[in-house]
């Protein structure tokens, strides 16, 4: 095996290795513990899913994925993503703009409120919509009279998904736009640009990687949300089952190979998600580095990010 070089930024005969050097024994022990823990907790579950998916041969796998119920679940999941993600992107941009581009009291309250859906249990997230729109909920009777179905139908699923994925884009953009400040926009406007021009030509290019990052995370969660959706779905096969719910039904019916096949599809998407996320992260760092070479203003931006102001 190759040797371990101490310290991330100063690897390979860089200054400062004399002091930050830990003993070889300590290094290898720590690395082995880390690898063992992550292997057990993360890699083993992945392997098990794929093993389960192909246990009965690939024909079963394909059959499970092309079953009409599975196809319906894929369609509903896609519909949910198509509704929830764009709306949350618009919200994220609007909220970040309102919070970071203006002097504003109560800023931190708003930022905290945006984080709220993350700290609420998904079951409660689904439940509040049942309490509001369910048959015995507040608006239930009125909705019943007008024959509008929200709970146990796709609108409820979309609402619950929007609730749990609401913060993703906003919480990525707020710190980023906060760090970038207002100077660029003020410069653009002083040069005669309008509001939309300023946004599309000045702001958007500088936040695109942050936006991509938030969108990826938002999409992944929208695809995979289980708890909140489970509460409002009603589990009607071929109608109100998203992919994760479909996995649950198959599993509870002891159709393990089919359940793991659909799970395998979701795992593949998850792996693509984290790969895309790493790429975006890398691009983001690179663009920050490039800005840094850009001069003192960019350096000041980094300093401000660093000190968290």
């Amino acid at each position: 095996m190759a040797t371990i070089v101490t310290d991330a930024r100063f690897a390979d005969a860089a200054p400062g290795t004399a002091v930050r050097h830990s003993s070889v024994l300590v290094r290898w022990t720590l690395v082995l513990i880390a690898v063992a823990f992550l292997g057990l907790m993360l890699i083993l579950p992945l392997v098990i899913v794929f093993c389960g998916a192909f246990e009965k041969g690939w024909q079963t796998t394909v059959a499970a994925l092309t079953h009409p119920d599975a196809r319906a679940a894929i369609r509903l999941t896609a519909l949910t993503v198509v509704i929830a993600v764009p709306l949350n992107i618009v919200f994220g941009i609007a909220a970040a703009w309102a919070i970071t581009k203006f002097r504003l009291r109560g800023k931190s309250v708003l930022v905290t409120l945006i984080d709220l859906p993350f700290s609420v249990s998904p079951v409660i997230a689904g439940m509040v919509f049942v309490l509001l729109f369910g048959a015995r909920g507040l608006l239930g009777p009125w909705l019943g009279e007008h024959d509008i179905r929200i709970i146990f139908a796709w609108p409820g699923i979309a609402l619950a998904t929007m609730f749990v994925t609401l913060p993703f884009v906003a919480r990525e953009l707020i710190p980023l736009m906060q760090a970038q400040g207002r100077d660029d926009e003020e410069a653009a406007i002083s040069l005669g640009a309008g509001g939309w021009q300023t946004f599309f030509r000045v702001t958007l290019p500088s936040i695109k990687w942050g936006l991509a990052y938030g969108t990826i995370l938002c999409t992944a969660r929208a695809l995979g949300e289980f708890g909140a959706v489970s509460v409002v779905s009603g589990h009607i096969r071929g109608e109100t089952n998203t992919l994760p719910l479909h996995v649950e039904i198959l599993y509870n019916e002891y159709q393990f190979a089919a359940a793991f096949s659909v799970a395998g599809l979701l795992v593949s998407i998850a792996l693509l998600t984290i790969i895309a996320k790493s790429i975006v992260e890398w691009r983001m760092h690179r663009s920050v580095r490039r800005d840094m070479d850009g001069g003192p203003a960019a350096q000041a931006t980094l300093d401000r990010v660093g000190s968290g102001r």
Partner: peptide
């Protein structure tokens, strides 16, 4: 992940996010 360099470090670093990306039912 921050202090040591070893083969597979990047992959491990990327994999850490898996629980955020993987549907909980799976």
């Amino acid at each position: 992940l921050v202090r040591y360099r070893f083969p597979g470090r990047r992959i491990l670093d990327t994999l850490v996010d898996l629980p955020f990306a993987l549907p909980t039912a799976v």
